[in-house]
Simulated assay, not measured.
Amino acid sequence: MDVLADALKAMRTARPRSARAEVRAPWGLRFPAFTGTTFHVVLHGSCWLLDGKPGEPGEPGEGRHLRLGPGDVVFLRRATEHVLADDPASPVRAFEPEEVGTDSLGRLRLDGPGEATVLLCGAYLLDGERPHPLLAELPGVLHLPAGAHGRLGRLVDLLGQEFDDPQPGSDGVVPALVDAMLLYILRAWIAGRRDVPGGWAAALTDPAISAALRDIHSEPERPWTVAALAARSAMSRTVFAQRFTELVGRPPLTYLTWWRMTVAARLLRESGAPLAVVARQVGYVSPYAFARAFRREYGISPGRYRHARS
């Protein structure tokens, strides 16, 4: 079980969206806020990431400007309102998602007399009710310069080729590459935090704690105990519990319950399985016990949750 991929799978609510924007100076695009995360890649040329409105610490906020060059990737943990422009003084117009349609190879063109910039702009639609704690540790704006992360750079090159020269099957290739890019972005961030003690980046690279996370993610239905998880990690119960809590941010069984409810919510959204079946798949013999646990986490019953999202 790949914990990172599994966590992202549980949070996704729809396919990622992306579009190629070819713009000529002077230009400016204001992107609206929405539930999820967003990214921009500079395929050719350069631009500025500007504030849409004041934000929280570490996020786009009043007075924040970031220069982006060819091959740069910028990831916004929360899709707050923001602006891309060729120059901070350029006029700004609203970006309307309807302009590029719902096709995987969406396109936007803005003509002007100046230099051209080609961007790949995209969004990951995630469940805002249950953001994984891993995402909460990310900076509001993560800037990954060109050339600093080899595999991510090669993926960016592939995406640029698919947009510049679509081939049979591109409509299936692009969403898969955009999906993969989120994992590559997170990998790059984790690699940059190898020397930072604590947190999810450390949890995923700690042999004992990552093994316990894999156990929980691969078999959430098992009646896990702290002792059982510690034994499989070859650690004492006390040391394991302390280490797990330090890195993951919550005790082992608290995280187990949180993950079980996250999986249950996905099953309720995406399948028509009876509640008793969903309950068993996340470790509850009794549907009533499952319903009580679900209500504690979400504030509503599993049945009402499913109906509201159908």
Rank of each mutant, 00 (worst) to 15 (best):
A201I: 01
E246M: 00
G61E: 12
V74P: 08
L144Y: 00
V41F: 11
G249R: 07
P287K: 08
V263F: 01
L159S: 10
V100R: 08
P197V: 03
V263D: 08
H143I: 08
V277I: 13
V23L: 15
R109T: 14
A201P: 02
V141W: 02
M261I: 01
G199T: 01
A136V: 07
S286G: 09
F39G: 11
R280I: 00
P251Q: 08
R269W: 05
T117K: 08
W200A: 11
A211H: 15
R77Q: 14
L155I: 07
L50Y: 05
M235E: 13
E59M: 03
S210E: 13
L50I: 01
A202W: 04
F290R: 06
E98N: 10
G58I: 02
Y284G: 07
G192T: 01
D127L: 02
F31W: 13
P302E: 03
L84A: 03
V226D: 14
S170V: 04
V83I: 14
S286P: 10
R306G: 09
V285H: 09
R280M: 06
F163T: 06
P57R: 03
Q242E: 15
P131S: 06
A212Q: 04
S90P: 14
V73M: 13
R306T: 02
L256P: 05
P207G: 11
R309V: 04
P274G: 07
C121K: 07
E129K: 10
H82Y: 09
E219W: 03
T238M: 13
G153H: 01
A228T: 09
M11L: 14
G71T: 04
A208E: 12
F75N: 05
A116V: 08
G63N: 10
R24D: 08
L43T: 10
D157S: 14
T80M: 14
S210W: 01
A89N: 12
R269L: 09
R64S: 12
H40I: 06
T245D: 10
G106E: 06
A5G: 12
T102P: 14
L8V: 00
